[in-house]
Design a protein around this nucleic acid. Structure first.
Lengths: 198, 198
DNA sequence: AAATTAAATTGACCGTGGTCAATATATCTG
DNA sequence: CAGATATATTGACCACGGTCAATTTAATTT
């Protein structure tokens, strides 16, 4: 199978698509992004976009993945949470980023499973990174008896992701009417999930 | 505000739409449902469908909600689970119904939050019913020391929903390649979630 | 440099969900 | 019954994502 390296024209085109898409997203929000606008601003034909990204979600996934990466960078620089409340507080930026727009949630959910096998997507990468960070934090919290130690940190980390998605799902259903913030709903669940056994 | 009762022509039309939609769904699956096919078979114009249902998902929600209701009916007739494994086994039919098609999952997730306030949707109703059933089961399991009692049964029930959605999300990401079934992935999570503190 | 092959881009075209002013049908009122 | 008024349905039309044979541009070979 012959596959040459992509030529630089292609890389430039891709870069232009991404930068124009990002412009739109920052000014009008993720859900306002239209494929036709992106290609118009980038000065390419519509088909070009779909030769660079599987579909619209694929493009969004790159943008969102990059954004999540930044949040993770911040989080990784933080010290290990001292308590469950502290943990939730440190989760908050990530949470409120996703909470801002339903399409962010949808895109992340659609890619959240891919276990980094081969698909070189930024989103996928961001997920393994997130779960790794959680597991590291939880492992350290276990050592100092802040949380339960009767389950592997990896399982506890997976649970956190599950609860994050859960409160976000509720958040979008409620049309922002009921709870004042997703983080509020998270507290009781994580308290129980991480509660030390004695 | 004047609002008369719907006249019977309207009820008939709605019934025809639903029954034709159901036909399509049972023969070709949920994701194969096309609005144009439904209205063609029902012998009405496209606009009519959207005067009866908010959008395509609204129609699907009625079908799916009804289907979930049947599953719940079965489950309610069952005795309280004796163990976590037994619980998972009893959850299985519901789980594998949703696992069969991504659009089922999407629709359910989109409506899963609405706390039955006013929207007279079958899906919404099915959700309160599900959480009620879970809470009843868990409450009884708590009494006989099968599971932890340091958290309200309602919170534990909510957690089950979160984990159900979590394993389903993973299931659809993996394209059915990795795990053999969503129920498998559920076991370790629920074991930890419901573990008695002894 | 011409010929050959592969990569990149194009844009007309399609499928499908959803809208809405116009029309038809039913119900009510004097 | 003849308007008057509310309800139900219509279907042409639009928005938007996505496809693919054809074309252009770049890299390789002779």
């Amino acid at each position: 199978m012959k596959t040459r390296a992509p030529q630089k024209r292609r890389l430039q085109t891709r870069a232009r698509l991404l930068s124009e898409a990002e412009k739109i997203v920052t000014t009008q929000g993720y859900s306002a992004l239209r494929v036709e606008d992106v290609v118009a601003q980038a000065g390419v034909a519509k088909g070009t976009l779909f030769s660079h990204f599987k579909d619209k979600d694929g493009l969004l996934a790159v943008l969102i993945g990059a954004r999540v990466m930044e949040d993770l960078e911040q989080m990784e620089a933080l010290p290990t949470p001292r308590s469950v409340d502290d943990l939730i507080q440190k989760l908050e930026p990530c949470l409120s980023f996703v909470a801002q727009d339903r399409v962010i949630f949808d895109v992340l959910l659609r890619y959240s499973g891919s276990t980094g096998s081969e698909v070189n997507e930024v989103v996928t990468e961001s997920f393994v990174r997130q779960i790794t960070l959680f597991a590291r934090w939880l492992g350290q919290m276990q050592k100092v008896q802040k949380i339960r130690s009767d389950a592997p940190a990896e399982v506890l980390a997976e649970g956190i992701q599950a609860f994050l998605n859960h409160v976000l799902a509720l958040w979008f259903c409620a049309e922002h009417a009921n709870d004042d913030s997703p983080a509020k709903a998270l507290t009781p669940l994580l308290q129980v999930w991480l509660k030390p056994l004695d």
